[in-house]
Structures are given as structure tokens and as C-alpha cells.
């Protein structure tokens, strides 16, 4: 079952197509990465999902149903560019945003208390937003996003401007919400976070989808049969050349030739007079895949 199904969505602005026939599905209960360089159309797509704008064609299903007036109450969206009313008090502000999401006065109170206690900031109720640091404001923004228990959480660069401690805090909360069944779309440029957090990703560039799938599958799909080996001793010139051995940060990289398996390489190395400490397949990082694909598509459009 999919929480979200994007079906052939197109969004044009005056001089460019921001979303160009994009389709993909997001399975329920997963953390999904929405990736793309700046100006790729991520925000345009998110704005369509959150019913801020309407697509020119195509449709979006949320939990099997077309988007409707009720959609905003089922989604929690934390935009990348975000602010709060500086003069308002924390408690008032959370109450206001919660009420706008359709919560009753009583519900807001219970949920706000719960989150304030979780983040150990119960003494902030009376503080004005302008008295808080940027990181502290971000916590309030996060609470405001999840206050109404959305089915789908859309987080655009949720960690920007956060220190490592708070990053971990928010990351743990995201994990916890996900375990409780919330589906999450995670939009970022920080690829190491994608690998750490997301199960599935979609990569869009210049309004088009250029890659979609399970993170592990994608890495396998783009693997270059590279193996990283840590060893002591000398390897003969001939072997080193055949496997195009290069030194890596804490070991050496060997690439397999056509028709060879990792066992062939291992067997040959065991025969040599060396001690092997570690042997692992070197998969490309999402970052590398991302950069390669974006550059490729740039070449295509330029050529």
C-alpha cells in the first residue's frame, strides 16, 4: 500500500517546466528520500503534494484518495525556508499552528505538553520566539510540524543549522515516529544523511525523475566491482596491475575484470605472501551516484 502516489504530474511556470511528467510511489511506513540539486523541482513537487499549488496535469493520491481540502490536516510539512512570528510566545504559537491544523483547543494542549516534555523545554511556554536561538526555534518548528500526528511527514532540510546534539535528537524523533507508522519524505542535499536514514529514494533533476528505488538496490546497480582490502606485505607488480590496484585512505582498491568473481580475487591474494586484515565490497556512495547522474543529465541537455 502506498501512502503517496505521484502520477504523471506536470507543473509549468511562465518560463520553465518545474515538474515534468514525474511519477513515483511512496510506500506506507517508510522513510523516503527526495533528492535533487537546487532548482530541480523538489519544492515545486512538495508544494503540489501539500496542496499549496495545483498541478497543471497528472494527479496525486494520498493514502489512495485524491488530494482534498482535508489534505493539509493529514500532512506535516516543515519547509526549508521557515520562520515563526517573533513576537509570539512559544505556547501561544504552537497552539495557533495546531489549531490551524484542525486540532481542538484541548487536543492542542495535551499534544503540546507531550512534546514540550519530550524535548525537555517545559519552561519555554512563556518565552517569546525572538528570545530563542535559531536551533531552539527549529525545535519549535519541528513540534509544530508533528503536533497534529500527520500520516505523512515532509521534512525539507530538517537539520540545517542544528548542532550535532540537536541533529541527533531530531533524528531519533524521526526514527521513533517512523516506527509508530508515520511515513516520511526527507528532502535534502546531504547525501550521508540519506544513506543513514532513507530506505528508498527518488532523484529528480531539471524537473525530471532520473532515478528511483531502494537505496541498497541502487548502490548495487551502480557498483563498479570494486573491493577494498587491508593487508600487510608486498603484492607483485603483475597482480597489482591486473586488478588496477590503487591506494585508498586506509587500504587498497582492487577492481575485478570481466567474468571474475570476488572469490577469484581472494584466492589469488591468499596465494600471495600477504596477511589480509579486511576484505569488503566498495559500493558507490549515494553522493557519488548523485553527482554522476546530475552531471550526465547536464551533459545530455547541453549536448
Amino acid at each position: 500500500m502506498n501512502i503517496l502516489s505521484i502520477q504523471d504530474v506536470v507543473k509549468r511556470y511562465h518560463n520553465h517546466t518545474a515538474v515534468d511528467h514525474v511519477s513515483f510511489d511512496i510506500p506506507k511506513g517508510k522513510i523516503f528520500g527526495l533528492l535533487g540539486p537546487n532548482g530541480a523541482g523538489k519544492t515545486s513537487l512538495i508544494r503540489i503534494i501539500t496542496t499549496i499549488t495545483r498541478p497543471d496535469s497528472g494527479q496525486v493520491l494520498l493514502d489512495g484518495a485524491p488530494l482534498s481540502k482535508r489534505t493539509p490536516e493529514e500532512i506535516g510539512y516543515m519547509p526549508e525556508e521557515r520562520g515563526l512570528y517573533k513576537k509570539m510566545k512559544v505556547g501561544e504559537h504552537l497552539k495557533y499552528l495546531g489549531r490551524l491544523k484542525g486540532l481542538s483547543e484541548k487536543e492542542v494542549k495535551t499534544k503540546m505538553d507531550y512534546w514540550m516534555e519530550r524535548f525537555e523545554i517545559t519552561n519555554w511556554y512563556k518565552k517569546k520566539i525572538e528570545e530563542l536561538s535559531k536551533g531552539m526555534q527549529q525545535k519549535i518548528q519541528f513540534i509544530a510540524t508533528v503536533l497534529h500526528d500527520p500520516k505523512l511527514l515532509i521534512l525539507d532540510e530538517p537539520f540545517s543549522g542544528l548542532d550535532p546534539v540537536n541533529t541527533n535528537l531530531i533524528k531519533d524523533e524521526i526514527d521513533r515516529l517512523n516506527k509508530q507508522g508515520t511515513s516520511i519524505i526527507f528532502s535534502t542535499h546531504r547525501m550521508e544523511q540519506v544513506e543513514e536514514i532513507c530506505e528508498r529514494i527518488v532523484l529528480i533533476n531539471q524537473g525530471k525523475k532520473i532515478l528511483e528505488g531502494q537505496v541498497s538496490d541502487i548502490k548495487n546497480q551502480f557498483k563498479e566491482n570494486l573491493y577494498k582490502i587491508k593487508f600487510d606485505g608486498e603484492i607483485s607488480q603483475e597482480v597489482a596491475q591486473r586488478y588496477q590496484m590503487v591506494a585508498d585512505r586506509d587500504g587498497h582498491l582492487f577492481s575485478l575484470n570481466e567474468g571474475q568473481t570476488s572469490n577469484d580475487l581472494l584466492r589469488e591474494l591468499l596465494a600471495a605472501n600477504i596477511t589480509i586484515h579486511a576484505f569488503e565490497e566498495k559500493l558507490p556512495s549515494v553522493n557519488e551516484i548523485f553527482i554522476n547522474l546530475v552531471n550526465e543529465s547536464k551533459l545530455q541537455t547541453n549536448g
Partner: peptide, 12 residues
């Protein structure tokens, strides 16, 4: 300017 609209328009 202070970007509160971004948060507001996801609800209203």
C-alpha cells in the same frame, strides 16, 4: 520576509 508564510500556507 521572516518566512512564516511557508509554514502557514501548508495549513491554510
Amino acid at each position: 520576509i521572516n518566512r512564516i508564510v511557508e509554514i502557514m500556507i501548508s495549513s491554510v
